[in-house]
Amino acid sequence: MEKIVASVSISNVRVRKRNSVAGDADKVIVIPKEFEERVLAIAVKIEAAEDKIREATEKFNMQ
């Protein structure tokens, strides 16, 4: 993740110094510094759940 060093506005969203910006092919999100740890912890849990779903789907498709 990259950190910005100045405040900017993008599509009416204010991105401030110390916010984190993350994105993939579908979306971009701005995470205020005070929520960063909580958001990242939740994201790790979601990713683990999605991995389990993918594994189960792959096993089901192999049968």
Rank of each mutant, 00 (worst) to 15 (best):
E37D: 15
S7T: 14
M1W: 03
L40V: 00
A56S: 13
I31P: 00
P32I: 00
V30I: 04
I29K: 02
L40Q: 02
V44P: 02
T57Q: 05
R16C: 12
R16W: 09
M62N: 13
R18K: 12
I42V: 06
N12V: 13
V21N: 03
S11E: 15
V28N: 05
Q63V: 15
E47L: 07
E55H: 11
V30R: 01
K3Y: 07
K27T: 10
E36V: 08
V8I: 14
V13Q: 15
D51F: 07
K59M: 06
Q63E: 13
S7Y: 14
E2N: 14
A43D: 01
R54Y: 14
V13P: 10
V39E: 00
A48D: 05
A22G: 06
A41L: 02
V39W: 01
F35W: 07
L40T: 00
S20W: 08
A43N: 00
S9G: 13
F35E: 07
A43M: 01
K33T: 10
V28S: 06
A48H: 02
V15G: 02
K33N: 11
D51P: 04
S20A: 12
M1E: 08
E50D: 12
K52D: 10
D26Y: 12
D24L: 03
I29E: 03
D24H: 05
E55L: 12
V28D: 03
E55T: 12
S9D: 13
A49F: 03
I29C: 04
S20V: 09
K45M: 02
M62P: 09
A48Q: 03
I42G: 00
A6D: 13
K17M: 04
K17W: 06
I46D: 00
V5F: 15
I29V: 07
V44Q: 08
R18G: 11
R38C: 01
T57V: 10
F35H: 06
E47C: 04
E36W: 10
K52G: 11
V39K: 00
L40A: 02
D26H: 15
A22E: 06
A56D: 12
K17C: 06
E2C: 14
A49M: 04
E2D: 11
A43L: 02
V28W: 04
R16T: 12
K33W: 08
V39F: 00
S20D: 09
K17I: 06
R18F: 09
